[in-house]
């Protein structure tokens, strides 16, 4: 979330581009092969899930999911 300098209104509603939660701090970003900065993400788990989209679609059988809790808490 980007608030105005006087704090009285919102200038930009910023959301994690993976899970859609509001991001109040800087958030996490990564740079893809083209050098584009991608984000913000609310956690490393979200970044990974976002990156893994294609791999999951091609996966055969169940996908093993990492726990998001341990990371978001640390």
């Amino acid at each position: 979330m980007k608030y105005s300098a006087n704090g009285l209104y919102v200038e930009e509603y910023r959301k994690c581009i993976n899970c859609g939660e509001l991001v109040y701090d800087e958030g996490l970003f990564f740079t893809d092969e083209d050098g584009t900065r991608i984000g913000p993400f609310s956690s490393a788990w979200d970044m990974e899930w976002y990156k893994g989209r294609e791999a999951r679609q091609n996966a055969k059988g169940p996908v093993l999911i990492k726990d998001w809790r341990s990371e978001t808490q640390s």
């Binding site: 959301k15 581009i17 899970c19 859609g20 998001w68």
Partner: peptide
């Protein structure tokens, strides 16, 4: 609710933007 993670990217019908 902890074992449930919801992925609802911005701009979708399930997470509309302002």
């Amino acid at each position: 609710f902890r074992p449930i993670k919801i992925v609802a990217p911005p701009g979708k019908l399930v997470n509309a933007d302002f």
